[in-house]
Computed example of a mutant assay.
Amino acid sequence: MRFIGKTALITGGGGVIGKATARLLHKEGANVVLVDHAPAALEPIAAELGATRMLTLVADVTKADDCRAYAGKAQGTFGPIDIFFNNAGIEGPSAPMAEFPEDEFARVMAVNVTGVFLGLKYVLPVMRHGGSVIITSSTAGLRGAANFTAYTASKHAVVGLMRTAAVENARRGIRVNTIHPAMVDSEMMRRIERTRQGNKSLDEVQQEFRNRIPLGRYLKPEEIADTVAHLASDASAMVTGTQVLVDGGSML
């Protein structure tokens, strides 16, 4: 029960990582505020966790008014924020850079970069001294990823936002870090697999992806949640400005 009396705000709360993190933090005593653009994505987790210490909010993270509103509503309901999991993101299409659609590039950057920036802009002022911010990046935020121009650029960009926020907020005792998962067993991964399938079977494509991970399998959303909880806890009190790999060895 590491988080009794603390409040956690999670964007991308309707996705598998957001839901897994919500379950864990709520189980360990936190008030949990889940934000997602799709009401239907929030309904199952809201029903699962119940009304106690739980709030769901619908917001578009690319819009300043929505981000200001979710930060204010979370603070107004539970008080200052202790944990901000700045997690909302999309992968966008798969295409070589010279063929990548400009409108899709702008869409991915709006969600993955502007959304993270706006979250920091409006949540940091309502965070408690000693709080923790965790931003979801990717192994693609540490290296190139062919055919994922916008996703790769966006996941590199949030590292810059993290470092700036870590420096600016250190005097308040607020820690800011990025996490960098490898491939997670999720619907996002199913979409990526389909783009690579061609004449291969789905099993063959999945095995090719698994072969890139020395530990030999996709990550579970719960394993990402465990890392988020560690960074949110007092056990990482001196960890800030850091890129934390959760990758099964894929960056070796």
Rank of each mutant, 00 (worst) to 15 (best):
S138Q: 12
M127V: 05
G72R: 13
T139N: 02
L142C: 04
N87E: 03
L120P: 03
P96M: 09
E102A: 14
L120T: 01
G92R: 10
R128C: 00
G130H: 04
V113I: 11
S94C: 15
V108Q: 07
R143Q: 15
D82M: 00
I134W: 01
P125M: 05
E102P: 01
P80Q: 15
I90F: 00
N112V: 07
V111Y: 01
S138A: 13
E102F: 05
R128S: 13
G89T: 06
V126M: 08
G115C: 12
F100K: 09
Y122M: 10
H129W: 12
L120W: 07
K73D: 13
G89M: 04
V108M: 10
A106Q: 09
G141K: 08
R143C: 04
I135H: 09
N112W: 07
E104L: 08
G76P: 03
A106C: 06
M97P: 03
A140P: 00
G72P: 09
L124G: 02
A106I: 04
E102K: 11
M127T: 06
V111F: 02
I90K: 02
I90M: 10
V111E: 01
I134V: 15
E104W: 04
G131W: 06
A110E: 11
F84L: 06
R128I: 00
T77A: 08
V116L: 01
I83F: 08
I135A: 10
G89S: 04
F85S: 05
N87L: 04
I81D: 11
D103A: 15
V108P: 07
G141N: 07
G115H: 14
V111K: 01
V111I: 15
D103K: 15
Y122V: 09
N112F: 09
S132G: 04
G115M: 13
G79Q: 11
G130M: 03
I135D: 06
V113R: 05
I83G: 04
M127P: 04
L118P: 14
I134R: 02
S132M: 08
T139D: 01
R143D: 01
M127H: 01
S94I: 14
N86Y: 00
G72A: 15
A88Q: 09
E91Q: 12
F78D: 10
M127G: 05
F84R: 06
I90V: 14
H129C: 11
A140M: 08
Y122G: 08
G79A: 10
I135L: 12
A110V: 00
R128W: 00
V116H: 01
S132Y: 10
I135K: 10
F100R: 11
K73S: 13
T114L: 12
G92T: 10
N112E: 12
V133F: 01
D103M: 11
M127A: 02
P125W: 07
D82Q: 06
A74I: 06
